[in-house]
């Protein structure tokens, strides 16, 4: 149990910093022995900042990730789906709450993190900058995006920072429900009417590429050997995770009758329409199982698009941040009131 960090932490990376060599060596030895670091332990400044940044980004992603699907809570088509979707989005908020607490204990107040998020100073996962225009998108998000999240988080659960690792394990338990419910929705649609199947294929065409991008840009030499890997803040490289993902989801999609396309997107994140009225996409011929390597092939997503979206120019960046900001502003008076009413008169309790 941590008493928390009360001293303000300078939250910038500092690669010139001179750390105590003995402590640094002990710290690395603990990590190399698969040991875990706890909040009260000594840790290199850049480890603390790196961990905090990654965790804050993760927490932000949970909070913003609640928005695209949240749009469908009021429109879910059955009582069961409505309840499940509310519970799912509620879980995302719960994950955000837990992850923010890991960051709070590393030295950054939650209030500051929420402010930074809604003024665009910090980022969240790129995948949430894509639109969810139909009910089938909810199904695809829960199947494809949550599937990607589980793979990623499983690898993060093998990391070195105890509080984050514990949170990851807990989150993954809940993600398993999201994923199952997503699978159930995709299976229902693909067993449904022609209209439902079409809806599912169109949503799949929107989400496949963002899910390939989910794991981040292709590995460079530095990401394979960088400090985040040696400190076990990350345990698997982007390309490794991406391949594992394709190996799992490409055959599953195929079995369901979904076709994997290489699609060209318009600025709204929808598959572009050619002048002849047809969608601007072709079947991904790379989707083949390679006996020799034991892996499925795939066409790399459009990495220019990835960097464009990350810089804030994706289909939904502005709308997501704006709603988060609006929520924070609308809630200001409520938080003020609650803080001010601490210790209600005895009659009230």
């Amino acid at each position: 149990m941590s008493a928390g960090v009360t001293t303000a932490v300078e939250l910038k990376m500092d690669w010139e910093i001179q750390e105590d060599p003995q402590r640094t060596a002990d710290f690395q030895a603990r990590i190399d022995a698969k040991g875990l670091i706890e909040v009260d332990d000594w840790m290199p400044h850049n480890y603390r900042v790196g961990m905090l940044r990654m965790c804050e980004h993760h927490a932000n992603s949970e909070i913003v990730g609640a928005l695209p699907e949240g749009e469908w809570i009021t429109r879910a088509p059955s009582l069961l789906r409505k309840l499940a979707l509310i519970a799912k989005v509620q879980d995302e908020v719960g994950h955000g709450q837990m992850l923010y607490h890991v960051c709070q204990d590393l030295g950054k107040p939650r209030d500051q993190m929420l402010r930074d998020l809604c003024t665009g100073k910090t980022k969240y996962h790129n995948v949430f900058n894509y639109p969810a225009p139909t009910w089938a998108d909810v199904a695809m998000i829960q199947w494809l995006v949550d599937g990607a999240a589980i793979l990623n988080q499983k690898s993060l659960a093998e990391g070195s920072y105890g509080p984050y690792v514990r949170t990851m394990k807990r989150i993954n338990m809940e993600e398993a429900f999201h994923f199952k419910s997503g699978e159930d929705m995709v299976l229902t649609l693909m067993s449904g009417t022609p209209r439902q199947k079409k809806m599912a294929q169109e949503a799949f065409d929107r989400w496949w590429a963002p899910c390939l991008m989910f794991f981040g840009p292709p590995d460079s030499d530095s990401t394979k050997t960088g400090p985040f890997m040696t400190w076990r803040i990350k345990t698997k490289t982007n390309d490794t995770l991406r391949q594992t993902y394709v190996d799992r989801f490409a055959p599953a999609a195929k079995a369901l009758g979904l076709i994997i396309h290489v699609a060209h997107k318009d600025k709204d994140g929808m598959v572009a329409i050619k002048p002849d009225g047809n969608p601007d996409m072709v079947v991904d011929e790379q989707i083949q199982f390679d006996e020799e390597s034991g892996h499925w092939g795939f066409t790399q997503p459009d990495w220019d698009e990835f960097f464009r979206v990350i810089k804030g120019n994706g289909p939904c960046n502005k709308q997501r941040v704006a709603l988060r900001r609006f929520s924070h502003e609308q809630g200001h008076w409520v938080r003020q009131a609650v803080m001010g009413s601490a210790g209600l008169p005895p009659s009230a309790n």
Partner: peptide, 30 residues
């Protein structure tokens, strides 16, 4: 699109918020 009314926010700005930091409430271990 039948999007819920409270979620139809278009305006976007990156300026500072109009109110000062609020601080966090007290942590309770569960």
């Amino acid at each position: 699109m039948g999007l819920s009314k409270i979620r139809q926010i278009e305006a976007h700005d990156d300026s500072e918020l109009s109110f000062p930091p609020e601080g966090d409430a007290k942590p309770y271990e569960v």
